[in-house]
Amino acid sequence: MSLRFLFALLVATGFAVQAAHSQTLSLKPFKDELFAYPAALSTGDNGAYTVLDYHEMRDINQRDEVPEKRVRAQYTDPGVRKVQQDLMLKTDAGDIRHVAVGRTEGASIIVLYLHGQGGSRKQGVDDFTFGGNFNRIKNLMAANNGLYLSPDFPDFGDKGAAQVAALIDHYAQQSPGAKIFVACGSMGGMICWKLAARKDTGGRINGLLLLGSLWDDSFLTSPAFKRRVPVFFGQGSHDVVFPVEKQEAFFRSILAKKSYPTRFVRFETGTHGTPIRMVDWRGTLNWMLTKAP
């Protein structure tokens, strides 16, 4: 066997193993029974659209020890803080303060959360607010050799997008085999759409989660759209900031494009922050992993 043939065989095997890993990656459970979605009131669009039976009394008052401030203890595992770091990354786009949870090198999956107006990197790692759902994504990443990032950024415009893009670029280089998913809460969605439109991040990210967020028709011509990057929408039916009807219309405009991989979960009677509290991180990310380019 020649050295050239052996080298080619090793390279091909490496690519095959990497491809198989990305195809079969499925996040292991973490408190799934506590974070399971409530009953579905209706479904449509061949399962892509779901209306869920959200109730504030059950999903906030019974779930939280102190409503909207501290979830009951059984919903969290604060031990994940052992692999949590508050870091500063110096880049050409500026210094980026961010919290990293899990593997900063060699991660199997990377998830970022981008906060909305008035938020900070601390919101995305608060173990006790939003029904413990940030603690869940932290534990999911830590238990699955993943990395979770919650950054600060200066604005919701081009400068903020440039810093988040630089953060993604840095950690993508540290974990070249990782799929990258960006979740954007409320106004953070402005950065989600800007990342999709950039040549660098639009060609690199593997999924977008819009949580109580806004729409952007320019996505339909973006590099991310052309790669068929899956998009998840979570929206409360009583969201007075971003009306659910407009987000539903945008979702259907995407869905109409050759059965584009997108899902919409409507939390009936839910408000602006409901999707951040209620999104099923594991179910959504596992679906995205099966669709990610």
Rank of each mutant, 00 (worst) to 15 (best):
A165R: 11
A165W: 06
A165Y: 04
A165M: 09
A166T: 09
A166M: 05
L167N: 01
I168M: 05
D169I: 09
D169L: 06
D169H: 15
H170P: 10
Y171A: 12
Y171M: 12
Y171G: 13
A172I: 09
A172R: 15
A172D: 13
A172V: 14
Q173T: 11
Q174R: 15
Q174T: 14
S175W: 12
S175M: 10
S175L: 11
P176E: 09
G177R: 12
G177V: 09
K179A: 15
K179S: 15
I180K: 05
I180Q: 10
F181M: 07
A183N: 02
A183S: 06
C184F: 02
C184D: 00
G185D: 05
S186Y: 04
G188D: 02
G188K: 05
G189K: 10
G189C: 05
M190K: 14
M190T: 09
M190Y: 11
W193S: 08
W193Y: 15
W193Q: 03
K194A: 11
L195W: 04
L195C: 08
L195N: 02
A196D: 01
A196W: 02
A197W: 03
R198E: 11
K199L: 05
K199P: 14
D200I: 12
T201C: 05
T201L: 04
G202Y: 06
G202D: 00
G202I: 03
I205G: 00
N206C: 07
N206G: 13
N206I: 03
N206L: 03
N206P: 10
N206K: 03
G207E: 04
G207P: 09
L208Q: 09
L209A: 06
L209V: 09
L210C: 12
L211A: 10
G212I: 01
S213N: 08
L214V: 06
L214H: 05
W215D: 11
D216S: 13
D217P: 13
D217E: 15
D217S: 13
S218M: 06
F219P: 12
F219T: 03
L220M: 13
L220K: 13
L220N: 06
T221M: 07
S222Q: 11
S222F: 04
S222K: 12
S222M: 07
P223A: 06
P223W: 08
P223L: 10
P223G: 06
P223R: 08
A224L: 07
A224F: 01
F225R: 00
K226Y: 00
K226W: 02
K226S: 09
K226M: 10
R227I: 00
R227G: 00
V229A: 02
V229Y: 04
P230A: 05
P230M: 08
P230I: 11
P230C: 04
